[in-house]
């Protein structure tokens, strides 16, 4: 019986130590409020092809404690207080109309002490906005318990153009993962000005793109004659891979555009490729490192 007593003593001490360390860990690793990752998103909206408001669905991502049962119920944008956006963590289509017999399960992907959560937003732009470019950098997040968090979300830009340039015609392309090749035919003589994107400063170190073999940063003054084609080869993931932005967890969605002067002397633009980085599927330790780096712990 003496041996059993020793086993009990050792076992209870071990469990007690783990529980004490566990509580210490819970205290140290709990974040005070949700941490939104930085989003760098550009959305091109063409307004000339159909009537009615333009719908754009977007997702914002944030990290919260795994035991946080609150969900985002509303999102406001202090820079554009007039923009009212339905927000839900249960998806935009059907999430509001689901009925369950029991309590609805808290959404999110739990990673250790944290949960990666997604907020679905449904933007709807009326004609009033068609003349401007909207850039959202801040959001006021309303949570289901009534608490409010004001946070920087990165840069979400909406461009409005009536219609895409018809001077360039896409002749198709191919894509494999982050590598994309697209060919355009030119209907009239053009002179290239630049490739631009509002988030170019963020992506330029990672984006590799060539137009007829020339680096996209070095195309100014390049002439392409009517009837010719040009080839765009892009590696939207760049040479540094998906973890290229490792210093900070980011969500990127970009559509770099070519700006050029047409034969008529007008300046026109055309989207060349689309790039999209889902947020990396971080594990607990990586999320912890990210939060520590951000000073959230």
């Amino acid at each position: 019986m003496e041996t059993n007593g020793k086993i009990l003593k050792a076992g209870i001490i071990l469990i007690a130590v783990l529980v004490v360390l566990g509580y210490l860990g819970v205290y140290l690793l709990t974040i005070k409020e949700p941490v939104f990752i930085k989003h760098y998103i550009e959305e091109q909206i063409y307004t000339g092809y159909q009537q009615g408001p333009r719908q754009v669905d977007l997702q914002l991502y944030y990290i919260t404690n795994a035991g946080d049962n609150r969900v985002v119920s509303r999102v406001d944008f202090p820079e554009y207080p007039e923009i009212q956006v339905p927000a839900s963590e249960y998806g935009m289509h059907g999430g509001f109309m689901t009925y369950t017999s029991g309590p609805q399960q808290t959404p999110g992907s739990v990673k250790g002490r944290y949960s990666m959560r997604t907020v679905y937003l449904g933007f709807s732009f009326e004609e009033d906005y068609y003349e401007e470019t909207i850039e959202i950098t801040k959001a006021v997040i309303h949570l289901s318990d009534g608490s409010v968090v004001e946070t920087e979300i990165g840069s979400v830009t909406f461009h409005f153009d009536e219609e895409r340039s018809e001077v360039l015609e896409s002749r198709g392309g191919s894509g494999s993962g982050a590598l994309e090749t697209r060919e355009f035919s030119v209907k009239e003589d053009i002179e290239l000005i630049e490739v631009f994107s509002p988030i170019l400063p963020v992506i330029q170190d990672s984006l590799e793109m060539k137009i007829n073999g020339r680096d996209f940063k070095d195309i100014e003054g390049m002439n392409i004659e009517a009837g010719e084609t040009f080839l765009v080869e892009a590696n939207t993931q760049g040479s540094r891979g998906s973890q290229a932005f490792g210093e900070e967890l980011r969500y990127l969605k970009f559509q770099p555009k070519l700006r050029f002067i047409s034969e008529k002397g007008t300046e026109e633009t055309r989207i060349l490729v689309s790039g999209w980085y889902p947020i990396p599927n971080y594990e607990f330790i990586e999320i912890f490192q990210y939060l520590r780096q951000k000073g959230a712990l």
Partner: peptide, 25 residues
């Protein structure tokens, strides 16, 4: 005595595992 030992040798690791599981979900 033997039954108690077997019980302890099962239930203590179970407690340790559950502590780990609850902390890391």
């Amino acid at each position: 005595e033997g039954k108690l030992r077997t019980y302890l040798l099962m239930v203590i690791p179970s407690g340790v595992l559950l502590t780990f599981a609850l902390f890391f979900n």
